[in-house]
């Protein structure tokens, strides 16, 4: 049962933090939000824009589940504040399919069964798209090394690597 205060707590009131307007282009659409400075880009996407495809795993830049593309480059969205990214273009897993057709990397993950629980998958897919755009991974070893920022606790790594190889080969052909 909730206990009622007889009177309001004394002492000065703590001011609410100043909120700051932020303009983002998210998955091609202009979005305006007003957020406290401590709101990470990850929390802005999930809590303010309702885009929960991007996952909060560790929230400390150690797991890669929150990977999104920021101005085309893969980053950990938990390790930047939304206010710092005013004017940026963000692509999340929700923005990858075109007219109902999955992105080739999404399709490759399905073709190769490259996940079990799926918690890391949106981060893996965004990271793989970043990897392919960078164009530096040519071998299996290089794919593994350059995907090391995305942890998969289910251990689906062999299938993830196979999916990325398929998407890379389709891209080239």
């Amino acid at each position: 049962m909730a206990r009622k205060f007889r009177k309001r707590p004394s002492g000065p009131t703590i001011p609410a933090p100043a909120k700051i307007p932020v303009s983002l282009t998210v998955n091609g659409a202009a979005r305006e939000i007003v957020v406290a400075p401590w709101v990470t880009l990850l929390d802005a996407l999930r809590e303010h824009l309702g885009l929960t495809g991007t996952k909060k795993g560790c929230d400390h830049g150690q797991c890669g589940a929150c990977t999104v593309l920021l101005d085309g480059r893969r980053i950990n969205s938990c390790m930047t504040f939304a206010v710092m990214q005013d004017g940026a273009k963000v692509t999340t897993v929700e923005g990858l399919a075109r007219d109902g057709t999955l992105h080739p990397v999404q399709q490759a993950f399905i073709d190769h069964d490259a996940f079990q629980c799926g918690a890391c998958t949106s981060g893996q897919i965004c990271s793989a798209i970043g990897l392919i755009a960078e164009g530096r991974a040519k071998t299996v070893e290089e794919i593994r090394e350059l995907m090391s920022g995305n942890i998969c606790r289910c251990g689906a790594y062999p299938n993830i690597v196979a999916a990325i190889r398929q998407a890379m080969e389709r891209e080239r052909s």
């Binding site: 893969r74 950990n76 970043g130 960078e134």
Partner: peptide, 9 residues
């Protein structure tokens, strides 16, 4: 050091 994502930032 780090990961591709962190090195990008």
């Amino acid at each position: 050091g780090a990961s591709a994502q962190l090195r990008n930032m």
